[in-house]
Design a binder for these strands. Structure first.
Lengths: 129, 129
DNA sequence: CTCAAATTAGGAATTATTCCTAATTTATAT
DNA sequence: ATATAAATTAGGAATAATTCCTAATTTGAG
């Protein structure tokens, strides 16, 4: 296995693995520089891109602001609160599969539903209103 | 009703209404300048944003590249081909509602499923492979 | 060990978008 | 109609997010 052979790439992956905050590149960069202060931002960008293409991590494209990333501990989707921006995980299930079938029928697009992100309002923000 | 009172805003809305290509700002800008060559790009940005906040048009956040926009002829979602980037419309239906309920149960996030975009592979690109 | 390939840091360049300002247009109240 | 206030505009500067470039360094294979 010839992946992950640079020290920097290992640090970046470890950092993403060990957080639950669905970090942006900026946040990943801040975390990795605490481990090794000389890692450059372009190295973070490059390796995060490689890891996302690998399906080691998942890119979460946000409606507003920079992309976020998440280590794939298990296959899952994301629900983003439109008010506070917090990201919640939810699992693949029967409903996901049914919807995938319905989309294929309507549009011809075949999807494993890998990149769905749902926008809505979380419980906390709803109760504040 | 005090919306749409500038000439520029009317042109921008008309252009978006009369295309099916789910245009980017750049593409909207090119189309509006064919009607009135003096409209500036910042005017396009500003008005497109207003129209999206109005729910007159819908912003489609792409996995790659700039946002795209679509006039809301009827409520619908989008399926994006990961290979050619083409955007397909699909309707709200039973499956969408079921999935929304499932997400609420799992995450607490309440969504009207307004901003789902599904990524996959379209028929045309699939047959080429 | 040696050498080719991959990776790095750091910054320049690019892309997408927002912000700023003075001038113009539009709406409102006489 | 006319004055005045509010909104909008063009155009460019500024910002944010990301990619690209290059010479130096590190890594892995023979």
């Amino acid at each position: 296995m010839s992946n992950n052979y640079s020290k920097q790439r290992e640090i970046i992956l470890e950092v993403i693995k060990n957080t639950r905050i669905h970090p942006t590149i900026e946040e990943i960069y801040e975390m990795v520089t605490k481990v090794d202060c000389k890692i450059s931002k372009s190295t973070v960008y490059r390796n995060v891109k490689i890891l996302a293409e690998n399906d080691t991590i998942k890119k979460i494209t946000m409606q507003e602001g920079p992309d976020r990333f998440d280590y794939i501990h298990f296959p899952h989707h994301h629900a983003v609160c439109e008010i506070c921006g917090k990201v919640f995980d939810f699992e693949y299930n029967f409903e996901t599969k049914k919807m995938s079938k319905s989309i294929k029928k309507q549009t011809g697009v075949i999807s494993n539903m890998d990149c769905i992100t749902i926008n809505g309002i979380c419980e906390n923000c709803k109760s504040k209103k």
